[in-house]
Design a binder for these strands. Structure first.
Lengths: 318, 318
DNA sequence: ATTAATTACGTAATTAGTTACGTAAATGTA
DNA sequence: TACATTTACGTAACTAATTACGTAATTAAT
């Protein structure tokens, strides 16, 4: 068993915690017996809060000890049968079931104090014998998880690892089909293809590159999963339009859009651009977000050939 | 909930461990989903050992991961249904059910490697952000519990606390009844009362004290719970016999016998004794143990008035 | 004053483990 | 070689929690 933890390591931390907690509960049973306390370990949290408070409702107890209310409900029923607790409907609120210790329960609460002292000492001594205090360690770990869950942390690591396998390369004729398909994917799911789309997607060389524009392609594990174009504009205010940005749905969430955007902006700068322009639609929230992250700001009052455009943005380069 | 742990403190360590482990399992479910792995968290230990070993029997897996074998049996059945594992009777041993990964399972094992890496990194990063590394802390704690269980540790604390409430006082006439009853208790449970017993238990003054002997009484919370006598001997080899040592069954396990013994030996020394003698029976193992701890050694060849005596011991005082 | 939403809490079903027990195969022993 | 013991493992019952859901009481909103 220890071999398993040594091999699997940290990824088995959940199993390890469960086993340790089971071991503790097992010993707790024997400890209650030694002190002649007719209490099951699982009753302890309920018993404890009621010995500190005169009276509490089911949900109030559940919240305090971090159990679900049905769990408390069941525990209370068991303890009522053993005449440790008694129930009483709340006078002002007919839904509430107020629970408190019976005289027998109070006597037990008194009797158990020595046991608490001994257990506390024993655990403290054990913790103090170790270099890494487990009680503090758990406290810290819970605090860190409250700030950012383990799921969230793993997601971040995944992204970090995957982005290393992403490569941004210049357009080549062999990327013609992916260039078209990746763009069609998002356009047809949210809008419909327009005439202007068809032209530039079918003939990127003629409509984009030959006019002085650029296209970059994102490869993930050597396969094209994202594209982005820089289109030369005939406009006194803007040099280029950032357009035809697309990332395949399977490759989303890896930060590929950001890489494409940064790469195309760099290209624009190397071409001497001073100002970039783009058109989009506010339903594409992640895209708008990305454009903001890249430094684009909203502008108004430009004409557009696209029906789907309801937001226009610009980026001033230095 | 945190309030509960803050109040109850360390004695709720079992609950806290359980909750933390539940939180980890919850996140694990979401993590498997994110990687499109059709694995339940509870399958992980079985899956892991089988991806490290070609083939293993049910109990071999159970031992390695620290589960009961029915648990593994159930998990394996579920995974066989999902065609991740396959079973095969052992050729040499008809009882054994050898389990291994199917091709699908092997493919999953290969696919899951990235996930392992990410999870490991994420956990490591979290642990390194804390002052007390929880993984090491658990390792240490388990090590300490292996050496001495929490039950054992609590028992020791109990003894330490209780021994403070034990007082050894000299005999007084009011302890006549307890002196008799405490001795009758053990004699009648293991043997039967003999004439010599009756005499000295009914008339301790005449048969023990007036002949130059001593009696001490142990009080626990002011109540007499143990006695021990020092009886003057008419023997060239021995000054006194240690006898009539008795501790009430309710007060056993608090180390009262040791206190009584030490006290009576001290008394013997103050009376100038050079050598003590005692008689006992080997069925009384804790007693024999205690006599050894006090320094007594086995001797042979003395006559005794007691039927129940089958071991004789002496202690040389310096 | 109704109606809608929320809260309290019980019951039922589910989950992930356990212990208890029975059977068959293998192993040890007289 | 026969019989007892041990081992492997499945089934059943139990345990301690959960989620899902329904009902009644209270509170908020129109």
């Amino acid at each position: 068993m220890n071999k398993f933890f040594d091999n699997a390591g940290i990824i088995a931390i959940g199993s390890r915690l469960r086993m340790l907690s089971e071991k503790m509960v097992e010993d707790a049973t024997k400890i209650y017996e030694m002190y002649n306390m007719d209490l099951k370990p699982k009753w302890f949290p309920v018993f404890y809060v009621l010995s500190q408070n005169n009276e509490k409702s089911i949900t109030a107890i559940a919240n305090e000890i971090g159990h679900s209310h049905p769990s408390v409900s069941k525990i209370v029923r068991e303890m009522v049968k053993e005449q440790i607790l008694c129930e009483k409907k709340d006078k002002n609120d007919g839904r509430k079931n107020n629970i408190k210790l019976t005289p027998k329960g109070k006597q037990m609460a008194n009797q158990i104090k020595d046991q608490y002292l001994d257990v506390q000492k024993a655990v403290e001594v054990t913790l103090n014998q170790s270099r890494y205090n487990m009680w503090y360690a758990i406290e810290e770990f819970e605090f860190l998880l409250d700030q950012k869950s383990m799921f969230h942390r793993v997601k971040e690591e995944k992204k970090l690892r995957e982005i290393k396998e992403v490569e941004i390369v210049p357009y080549e004729p062999k990327y013609g089909i992916p260039f078209k398909n990746l763009n069609e994917e998002w356009i047809t799911t949210y809008f419909k293809m327009e005439e202007t789309d068809r032209k530039s997607l079918n003939n990127p060389k003629e409509y984009i590159l030959d006019k002085g524009g650029e296209i970059v392609v994102a490869l993930y594990k050597k396969k094209p999963v994202g594209v982005c174009a820089l289109i030369k504009m005939n406009d006194p205010h803007y040099d280029f339009e950032l357009a035809k940005m697309a990332v395949s749905s399977e490759a989303k969430g890896k930060g590929i859009g950001l890489l494409l955007g940064k790469s195309i902006i760099k290209k624009a700068q190397s071409l001497g651009a001073k100002k970039l322009y783009l058109e989009s639609n506010t339903v594409l929230k992640p895209a708008i977000n990305l454009y903001h992250k890249l430094g684009f700001n909203k502008v108004v009052g430009h004409s557009t050939p696209y029906e789907r455009c309801n937001i226009q943005m610009e980026l001033v380069l230095d």
